[in-house]
Nucleic acid binder design. Structure first.
Lengths: 355, 355
DNA sequence: GCCTGGCACTCCCGCGTGCCGACTGCCAAC
DNA sequence: GTTGGCAGTCGGCACGCGGGAGTGCCAGGC
């Protein structure tokens, strides 16, 4: 056993054994023993040798025994090594490609609906829980605002961004406002701000435009509020689907674990926290990312893994797709599915984006 | 044992026993025996007498025995009699009233968000699964349409109804369209249709308005599509929350039942079917309605009950709140909660409605 | 005629027991 | 370094047993 940087350096045979144990455990959900290994895979050595190797892999932290005299299952580090170095990358099957394409062909044009439909697609394909986070509204491009005169003292403000209508709100003023003022202000805002990224439009800039036209404070306030609502939402736009898939996995037959997952799914905030970490790297690094077990930093998710992959919307927008499932998940396939879906989502949003 | 219309007529004592059995079973989730009954409730007779009465209640179809020599649990008919004739009506506690009021005070102004927030509130209060169905878009009142010129060949159409923005869509034409035409058409549509119920606005009526202004076929088509999208949605707007509450109930520790529920919740269509029956009566009859076990006409829901209560939006709109839980649910409390929440939802939507 | 205490009977459920099978670790031999 | 053999460990399952809860029935009393 050679240790390099505190870690067991894996020779070729150890690597193959680790790979095979992970693969077998992912498929059977049963701890893997040395005899199973020699019988099902052509290793060229006897089970006794495998036992010695497996003992060393356990000492190195790659495998653990649920109890004495049981087979081994991978540890977080074992899965990590598998994902980073041992696993075969997979590509999408023809059938998957077709289903993804068909889904997006008839997908909605509204961002929040697209998000939901995508989670349903991805959970169906992956057989796990799928999560989708919409790009922050701050990064959408401003397209259009209309202040619609309803009565002398009320108006409807509609703000349109590159992702569609982002805010709509009825305003009421204590004094009469001329319909003409609203039209003039709408026109001025549209010509000066069109195409700007929402987070770059400052409230004082909005005030300046209104001041130039000598528009009263009440209306100015309304415009500021309308823009603010268009930018920020109480809750991040996020969707999840496929929780019932997890019931098929033996690790979730324990009700406590199941409850933990359901709680996470129903609370948008927790769901957001779960994948928000990745958003920062995501922008620079558009490749899939896997977090395994304790890497998720949540005790109730210690037996889960999450695959995340970012997607782009417009110039600056970054959203995220994720698959949550048991640690014992088919990483290769899920990474391929998440990437493929993210690519199609990219394209679809590109089509739907208002230019 | 007197049979009236094929049913056992309940004398006062039988009624009290049935009521007590249901009450006890709802609280303990354990089959109720004759001794428990005489010990916990002051019945004035011995357990042997109760046994005779319970045997008759079983013969009459109100109680069943899970197995020989166990206590009794209510049948669908037993619950039905309890709900219709025996149960004490309940009123909301101060605390519930306050929580409902607080929730709606800071509720969203957007219909689909209000729906979601309401399910979260109601599931939290009731400890069961809450469902909310938005009123059909057909019943909203038309308020405003704006055809927004983006480029000579593209425009954005926004339709606003009494529930807010209902459709937004970019149209592309093979030939140039004048910005002025779009404005004229928007104005004409607004002045002629304002306040009309969406389902009463016919496509040919839209065409007529465009024809009067000599507007081309491409634009006419766009207006028709914009109105059609505003009226109908691919899916009914429906939300559910609180599935994890059901995990606390012993009847859902069986994974098959749990899976059935989760599937129903995740498939909007099934969820809609579950409460849509009630929509038809709902309009005329604004009181809560309870369906128990097999009355739900779904094998996988044979051990569930649903409380539904309609709410109103605008002149013709009817939506629905529902609570789904085990048959063994606290009917009185849940009916009070659903009614109270529906009342507040009524009021809130009345405030938010665009007039 | 209704109510009651007593009694035999039934059935679920939890517990302890013992056995089987799977797997390991170790060792001596190759 | 590899191998077969062997003892040891542990989970899981079937089995049987007894306790407990509850019933139905019956004879006797009010």
């Amino acid at each position: 056993m050679r240790l390099v940087n505190d870690k067991l350096e894996l020779d070729k045979r150890k690597a193959f054994i680790l790979q095979t144990v992970v693969y077998e455990y992912i498929n059977t959900a049963e701890p893997v023993g040395s005899v199973t290994l020699t019988q099902k895979y052509n290793l060229g050595v006897s089970s006794a040798t495998i036992r010695n190797e497996m003992a060393e892999l356990e000492a190195g932290g790659y495998l653990v025994q649920p109890h004495t005299s049981s087979g081994r299952i991978p540890s977080d580090a074992g899965y990590r090594t598998y994902v980073d170095r041992l696993m075969q990358p997979e590509t999408l099957t023809k059938d998957d490609t077709r289903r993804i394409r068909d889904q997006f062909r008839e997908a909605s044009r509204e961002l929040s609906e697209v998000i939901e439909q995508t989670t349903r697609l991805l959970s169906g394909l992956s057989g796990n829980l799928a999560i989708a986070l919409a790009p922050s509204r701050d990064t959408h491009a401003f397209k259009y605002v209309q202040l619609i005169w309803l009565s002398p003292r009320t108006a409807l403000a509609v703000v349109v961004t590159s992702a569609g209508v982002a805010s709509q709100r009825v305003f009421e003023w204590p004094h009469d406002v001329a319909a003409d003022d609203l039209t003039r202000l709408s026109n001025a805002l549209n010509s000066k701000l069109s195409g700007r990224i929402m987070e770059d439009v400052t409230p004082s800039e909005l005030d300046d435009i209104a001041n130039e036209l000598a528009i009263g404070a009440g209306v100015r306030e309304a415009v500021r509020t309308a823009f603010a609502t268009a930018r920020q939402h109480d809750e991040p736009e996020i969707a999840a689907a496929g929780a019932q898939n997890l019931l098929d996995q033996p690790e979730f037959h324990d009700l406590r674990k199941l409850r933990a997952i359901l709680r996470i799914v129903e609370e948008q905030r927790t769901l957001y926290d779960l994948i928000a970490d990745e958003l920062n790297d995501g922008a620079g690094n558009p490749s899939p990312h896997v977090r395994i077990g304790h890497e998720l930093r949540a005790e109730e998710l210690a037996e889960c893994s999450v695959v995340t992959v970012p997607y782009r919307f417009g110039d600056r927008g970054v959203g995220m797709l994720a698959i949550l499932g048991p640690r014992r998940m088919p990483y290769g396939r899920l990474i391929a599915l998440a990437s493929g879906t993210a690519r199609s989502l990219d394209e679809h949003l590109n089509d739907v984006e208002i230019r």
